[in-house]
């Protein structure tokens, strides 16, 4: 209940600000009038009475300011003032403002991009079952560096390996897709049949199978 009242009154203040200000002014003037009348009745000269009454109040403008800053929603006024001030300052020096805005935009953009990569590559676990147990084994020769693993050697590795549950063979081989509009280069790999079960990808649809076979 209190909250609704509060909200409604903040809204009223924002929409009918002039009337609210007028109202506050009238109220304080009435206060001073009544106080002055009492002082005249007590024997003070009329001109002096009003001055004393304003003094009692602690100044009309000061009291208004007290009321304004004590109202719920006073922070909205402050935010409004700050925003207007910021916009004025931007408009006064548009060149500098533009440089600052562009710098900020680029900085935020670059950060977002970098973080997206870090998030995908480092922070998120791979979408496989037990990704922490996945490793890649390469074959390298001293003179030639990394070389493709032959099917025959792979069979040997698989039979002899004791540190691995399962092994699968994979060779990255980009392909060109033709026959469906413009030719297109696709990332593809030739893999052994044991790869998908090993990664925990079981429910590849028929369509996927077809595509896998087509690419392979």
């Amino acid at each position: 209940m209190t909250l609704i009242h509060r909200f409604a009154s903040i809204l009223r203040w924002l929409v009918h600000r002039n009337r609210a200000e007028q109202d506050l002014n009238d109220e304080l003037q009435a206060f001073v009038d009544m106080a002055a009348a009492d002082k005249v009745r007590d024997g003070a000269p009329p001109t002096e009475a009003r001055r004393l009454a304003v003094l009692d109040l602690g100044g009309i403008e000061q009291t208004k300011e007290h009321v304004r800053s004590a109202r719920h929603g006073a922070w909205l006024d402050e935010v409004g003032r700050d925003v207007r001030y910021a916009l004025r300052m931007c408009a006064r020096n548009p060149g500098f403002s533009a440089i600052v805005i562009i710098t900020l935009a680029l900085g935020i953009g670059a950060n977002t991009a970098v973080f997206s990569v870090v998030d995908a590559v480092l922070l998120r676990p791979l979408a496989y079952t037990e990704p922490e147990r996945l490793v890649v084994v390469h074959e390298t020769l001293p003179q030639r560096g990394r070389v493709p693993v032959g099917a025959f050697e792979f069979e040997g590795w698989r039979r002899a390996a004791q540190s691995f549950d399962q092994m699968a063979l994979m060779a990255v081989a980009p392909v060109i897709l033709t026959g469906a509009g413009d030719p297109e280069r696709l990332d593809a790999a030739r893999v052994s049949a044991s790869l998908f079960p090993m990664l925990g990808i079981e429910k590849t649809s028929r369509c996927d199978h077809e595509r896998v076979r087509a690419v392979a």
């Binding site: 009242h5 509060r6 009154s9 903040i10 506050l24 109220e27 304080l28 206060f31 009692d56 109040l57 602690g58 000061q62 009291t63 007290h66 009321v67 800053s69 004590a70 109202r71 719920h72």
Partner: peptide, 13 residues
């Protein structure tokens, strides 16, 4: 009055 009126306004709000 500098604290009376703010109180009145808040109570009204």
């Amino acid at each position: 009055p500098g604290s009376l009126f703010p109180s009145l306004y808040r109570l009204e709000q």
